[in-house]
Every structure is written in structure tokens, then in C-alpha cells.
Amino acid sequence: MVKRISVVDVDLCVGCQLCMFACNRRFAEAGISRAAIFVQSVGGIERGFIIKVCRACKDPPCVKVCPTGAISKREGGGVRIDHKKCIACGNCMKNCPIGAIFWDDSLNKPTVCTYCGYCVSYCPYGVIKLEEV
């Protein structure tokens, strides 16, 4: 079965963003601009955080709006991006209702979770987990 990152309990999140830094380290780089997971507060830090990450939809809206077929469905749920086909139009980002497709400044192309689970090992409070779709 294929996997995805799921949010166990968003109220456990302390907003440390270690998941974002971890995601960026997949490329062995520090910082956050290549991360495919994002943590932010809504209505102020005192109200808590939201975690934006691809939830591996079975029928992903981003696939439907890609003019070049660069985003394709992954079997079992979720997507893959073929950056060679991608023309960087940004339609996928605009059409993901949860905002889980991000912009990788280094590639100048969109980026999305690859469901590798690397970020999960750096979440100190068990907010996110890798689970079967």
C-alpha cells in the first residue's frame, strides 16, 4: 500500500517547524524554501497552528488543471511531478484547496510531498505520522 503524511492531532503542534527544515534537508540543504510541508499559525500563535501537506487525494484537483500532464496520479492516491514536463504555470498550486503544493525557488517549479516520511522522524511531539492511504 502507498503511504502519506497525516496529521495526528494539530493541537499537539508547537510550531517549531522542524518538519519544514527536515523536508529541505532531503536536498541536503539548510533553510526552508524547498520544503513541501508548511506550518503556520492562523489568527495568531495563541490560536494554534495548521499544517499544510499533501494528503494524497484519490482524485487530485491539481492533476486536472495541469496543462502538460506534468502532475500525474500516483497509484493508490497522491501525485508525482515530472519537472521535465512542467512549464511552471502554477495552476496546480492555485487549485489545491489546502495549499499543499509549494514553490521551489531553486528549481523555479512547484514541489509537493513525496510521501517519504523524512519529516516525521523530526517531529518531537508526534503531530504527524506516515500512514497508509
Binding site: V14, G15, C16, Q17, L18, F21, I45, E46, G48, Y122, P124, Y125
Partner: peptide
């Protein structure tokens, strides 16, 4: 009511 962390700090 809540514990929060600085950016890039797991301690919170």
C-alpha cells in the same frame, strides 16, 4: 493553555 516553540527549536 498552550505551549509553543521558537522557529527551528523542538523544546517549545
Amino acid at each position: 493553555g498552550r505551549r509553543i516553540a521558537c522557529a527551528h527549536c523542538p523544546v517549545s
